[in-house]
Design a protein around this nucleic acid. Structure first.
Lengths: 201, 201
DNA sequence: GTGGTCCCATGAACTGGTTTAAGAAAAGAC
DNA sequence: GTCTTTTCTTAAACCAGTTCATGGGACCAC
């Protein structure tokens, strides 16, 4: 007998939506039906640069990173996602143009994926969801702007402190080189910064 | 007799909208009626950090910059706008929270401003506009992401070349220190970079 | 166990960009 | 016009962060 593939429950997502808009049980069922459960093993990719990003992925379990690979082949982490977060190359998903980012599983993951066509169909059936996804886009925009402003105005040590303060769970869970890449510094320099910061507290 | 205050024609904006959605003459009139014409003298502010950004401004004539002031009082240019562009602190405008950016006129300007309530009312009367403004938000998001990726992956000289290639009109029109600030370098270093780049071509 | 492989730490040499300072050129102010 | 202020350039000293090299520890696989 092959190992059972456990299905992915939509509960976590429905709870997340409920924090922003109120759905009837029927509407919640419509949402649940539109989602495609997906299991991803560590090192597998949810999005590949160069191809159109087909899905937005909601993380039920696991951890992923979105990263940009520059012309010299260096990777730059742009975004992480753990349980209760969405992840995608949003620019690609929205405009249906080739992705500039890869999205890779850092742990085995359970995802709920929503493709572009299913999303449009959902908007017809449950118009309230437009509000929910507009809020998600706004949040993404605001977060992206804040990150950009910090990266130009703060030195590496301050950026590291902010990161620790903002995402305490994440720092535990990620290899340091991924944190370094996110902060825009080398792992060697992060090591030096950490020495500073950690011996203070 | 006081000098006549010339009114600001909505034609440029209506043409801009027509490139994305098709409006009937009646709908175009509704849009025109929702806009607030505004003249801004050089050095006046359209948005002030700390206050909620009330308007999105469409530039009919003139040039503006949006900039962030960091904790040490240094300014960082984030965005420029000339004729046929929109400018605002979009994060603040969308979420109606205090702005982190200032928007300042670099030349005397003629703007068409749209406040948040007027926008919501327009959505009711002319639903097609939701598409138009969704596209504007998508474009802003994509542009912001590209800029962030370039700023972490390219050295200053390459960033300067990209800027020249992408916005040839802008470079003519702006003081170099504003370009330097946009590129994330000092005016002194831009001067050195320019010497390099200009003597090649 | 022991031989990979990956991950983190440390230190020395180096580099892209800043700072400070000073002068020349351009733009406002009156 | 001419005086003042702002803008741009150049150059030397400096610094935040990189690169390169090395060693040590944890986690496998077998």
């Amino acid at each position: 007998m092959p190992p059972a593939i456990p299905s992915v429950s939509p509960d976590l997502l429905l709870t997340n939506i409920a924090r922003h808009v109120l759905l009837t049980p029927a509407e919640a069922a419509t949402v649940a039906a539109a989602l495609r459960p997906r299991h991803l093993r560590r090192r597998q990719f949810a999005v590949q640069a160069g191809e159109v990003c087909q899905y937005e992925s909601f993380v039920v379990r696991g951890c992923l990173r979105a990263f940009y690979t520059d012309v010299n082949g260096f990777e730059h982490n742009v975004l992480f996602a753990i349980e209760d977060w969405w992840i995608a190359d949003l620019a690609s998903y929205l405009t249906q143009t080739p992705a500039t980012l890869d999205v890779e599983a850092l742990e085995d993951c359970e995802l709920l994926q929503l493709d572009r066509a299913a999303l449009e169909a959902l908007y017809e059936q449950v118009p309230k969801l437009e509000r929910y996804f507009r809020l998600m886009l706004q949040n993404a925009f605001v977060a992206q702007q804040q990150r950009a402003l910090q990266s130009i105005s703060l030195p590496a040590e301050a950026r590291y402190r902010q990161f620790r303060a903002k995402y305490p769970q994440l720092e535990q869970r990620l290899p340091q080189r991924h944190v370094a890449s996110y902060l825009g510094i080398t792992p060697e320099f992060l090591s030096k910064v950490r020495k500073q910061v950690l011996q203070e507290s």
